[in-house]
Amino acid sequence: MKVNFDICDRCATCIAVCPVSAIMMDIESLVFDEELCTECGICVISCPVGALTAESKQDMKRVT
């Protein structure tokens, strides 16, 4: 999962809906547990500002 931190408002709606508890709110930012994330996309459609986009897992590993 990719987060656009320029528009993320840290409202944590994504954390509340993640069915596998793969998202954590750090003091400064959102952290995704890539091992747990199933790319179901529920957080993407729930985000009030559209700050999340799904990427393939391989892409994610490359980014991080």
Binding site: A12, T13, I15, V17, S21, S46, P48, V49
Partner: peptide, 26 residues
């Protein structure tokens, strides 16, 4: 600790929400 609380789950209670159980607001 708000809508994002995971402590309930960690304590064994059911607090998970589905997309039909949440409203996104702005």
């Amino acid at each position: 600790d708000g809508i994002e609380s995971r402590l309930g789950e960690l304590a064994g209670l059911k607090t998970k929400l589905s997309t039909s159980e949440i409203e996104a607001a702005y």
